[in-house]
């Protein structure tokens, strides 16, 4: 029963959404260059399904690689800031400043700096845009560790490393996964920014761009849907990992 509900409810919601979308376009009589309707998308997908698979894969792997680097780097920066007040004071304004720069303006700079290294560029932007929430959440998780946790282990003669592995790290996991959910979406934005702006013809961003140059509006909308689909898949991968590693943080309902 519960399983059925978990699948049925989102499915019905999605179908309702598509139906409303279709109705909106149909009632207003919009041409597909104003807004494509879901029924326009089906031919776009069937015509280009091979391209969707190839480009979708390119977008996906570069996003995931960028995200993985962001996790490693973000966790490291978070650890440094979480454990040392001095480093936190030193790094925080830098990080905030770095994060405040719109990545759309960084894209052409990176594209110029590493001309031709398309995969590298894309991964780099995906990484740059997504590591910030991870670093911040890990640092906050570590720096807000109640002193009692530390005292209990320290009074037994535990080393800093032991305290980190036994307490600080697992304690931070819920915050970490919260940030990861944000980072997943951000990483997709990063990948697509690079794919759209930099003319190298790879990824869903490039497919979107070609739809634009060829006035193939249903294709552009179809790319949006494909991106949403990838985003949902990756998001739920994170949710599944969260359940495994930080499921304890979820209070039983009721």
């Amino acid at each position: 029963m519960i399983k059925l509900r978990q699948i049925a409810v989102p499915t019905i919601a999605m179908i309702t959404f598509l139906a409303l979308w279709e109705a909106l376009v149909w009632i207003n009589g919009w041409p597909n260059y104003k807004m494509a309707s879901p029924s326009d998308l089906v031919p776009a997908f069937t015509r280009y399904w091979e391209l969707f698979l190839i480009m979708g894969w390119q977008t996906l792997w570069r996003t995931v690689v960028g995200l993985l680097i962001a996790i490693v780097f973000g966790t490291m920066v978070g650890m440094i800031m979480g454990f040392s007040r001095t480093m936190r004071d030193a790094l925080y304004p830098l990080l905030v400043g770095f994060n405040a720069v719109p990545k759309a303006t960084v894209v052409p700079i990176v594209a110029l700096m590493f001309v031709g290294a398309h995969d590298f560029n894309t991964v780099l932007i995906a990484f740059m845009i997504s590591f910030f929430p991870i670093a911040v959440s890990v640092s906050i998780g570590l720096s807000t560790l109640e002193p009692e946790y530390r005292d209990i282990l320290r009074s037994l003669g535990a080393s800093q490393t032991t305290i980190f592995w036994k307490i600080a790290l697992p304690k931070t996991l819920p915050e970490f996964f919260g940030a990861l959910k944000v980072a997943v979406t951000l990483a997709f934005i990063g990948t697509n920014l690079m794919e759209i702006v930099s003319p190298h013809g790879r990824g869903l961003g490039a497919l979107f761009d070609s739809g634009k140059t060829n006035s193939d509006y249903p294709l552009m909308f179809a790319v949006l849907i494909a991106l949403a689909f990838l985003g949902i898949v990756l998001y739920y991968v994170v949710v599944a990992l969260e359940k495994i590693f930080a499921g304890w943080a979820e209070r039983p309902a009721g």
């Binding site: 009692e148 209990i152 009074s155 697992p170 304690k171 930080a246 943080a249």
Partner: peptide
């Protein structure tokens, strides 16, 4: 040691 706040490892 035991403290007023009985911190437990929730996991």
């Amino acid at each position: 040691m035991a403290f007023q706040n009985p911190v437990m490892l929730e996991w």
